[in-house]
Design a protein around this nucleic acid. Sequence first.
DNA 1: CCCCCTTGCGAACAGTTGTTCTAATACTAT
DNA 2: ATAGTATTAGAACAACTGTTCGCAAGGGGG
Lengths: 207, 207
Amino acid sequence: MKPLSARQTRILQFLHQFFEEKGYPPSIRDMVKGCKISSTSVVEYNLRILEREGYIRRDREVSRGIELSRERRMVRVPIIGYIAAGEPIPVPTSDSWSLVADSLELTEELTGGKKEVYALKVKGTSMVDALINDGDLVLMQHVETAENGEMVAVWLKKEKEATLKRFYLERERVRLQPANEEMKPIYVNPEDVEIQGRVIGVIRKLE
Amino acid sequence: MKPLSARQTRILQFLHQFFEEKGYPPSIRDMVKGCKISSTSVVEYNLRILEREGYIRRDREVSRGIELSRERRMVRVPIIGYIAAGEPIPVPTSDSWSLVADSLELTEELTGGKKEVYALKVKGTSMVDALINDGDLVLMQHVETAENGEMVAVWLKKEKEATLKRFYLERERVRLQPANEEMKPIYVNPEDVEIQGRVIGVIRKLE
DNA sequence: CCCCCTTGCGAACAGTTGTTCTAATACTAT
DNA sequence: ATAGTATTAGAACAACTGTTCGCAAGGGGG
């Protein structure tokens, strides 16, 4: 993307502002007025550049046929339960996406376009070594096996404990590494590890 | 809201679908074609009803002047810079919302409807005591004074250090409490504290 | 200097589009 | 059935709107 001229920046900014305000795109003559430009052809000229540079998409010959390029996709993520040290980790079922009361609305920017993302609310401060606090929301994707280095939610059968750690399968053992690099990893037997999901994000809301 | 007729439901559904697909609202004649209606006046007639019942908002005499009432709760949050232990904390300027290259799109669910929210990217692991990791995004709101108990970004003048802590003004000193409750607070002189913003959220994206 | 490219300007054209009017049809309650 | 309301149909109009064309001003390089 080449840098935009002052006029192009102005038009792009007006485009966003108008759309935000009205809910539909401006006409070329709206832009003439809004950006204090003297002719529609100047706008037309600069719109071509904005389109070529990928800032907008246009449908020619259609009034207000401008689409702002940034993705505006929203995803509704169900909060299917709580995650706490001593309790089993909830696993999504087929109903999860339809029958759940509480949910969270996110952009695909946060879910990375992944499918079947769900959220768990953290109960208690047992996950501070993963830099996760009481009340945080953990974005999860259901998997049953993990790649090395991925942050996963695991259930340790012997210890009867749920935890969030980075997963590394080593020779005959599994190394679980806390997100906080200053803290020491724990080593467990592979049979003791039950992978419940992959952590793809953390959201903390403060009041 | 009265129940909608089949035709009105059809139109409303087409409206959403068209908008989702194209990024701008359909014209009345688009709806005629898309909903297999024989006349523009029928669409006009039903649009009035949809407007009266609050499903849409219209700007009369404006082509494609339709705004969908549901879900328009997206906010673009500029990432105005980095926050690191030894560097001053960036403060938003009036340009921040228009001239920033990098930005984040969020729902108002996360910003709580607050105005002038911006984001800072965390550089380094110096904020682990706030349960914030390298690469995390901190959602901020610009304030110059803080209420007791709020999580704030502060610049400690004497120590030349940026940090995120809960703020408590006590008799003659300021107590800065890490989010991790197991860690001890630090006490500083009020003159040494420069409040740069209020933390309203934390977002961590994992790959 | 000239040439080429970018950018800006004004006007005109043709297709698009919201609106309105009249008439017809369907449905409901009395 | 009858009156009244809700809905549909078709057409015509005036304004809106994207496009295009000719022209000109500026700027950089040969």
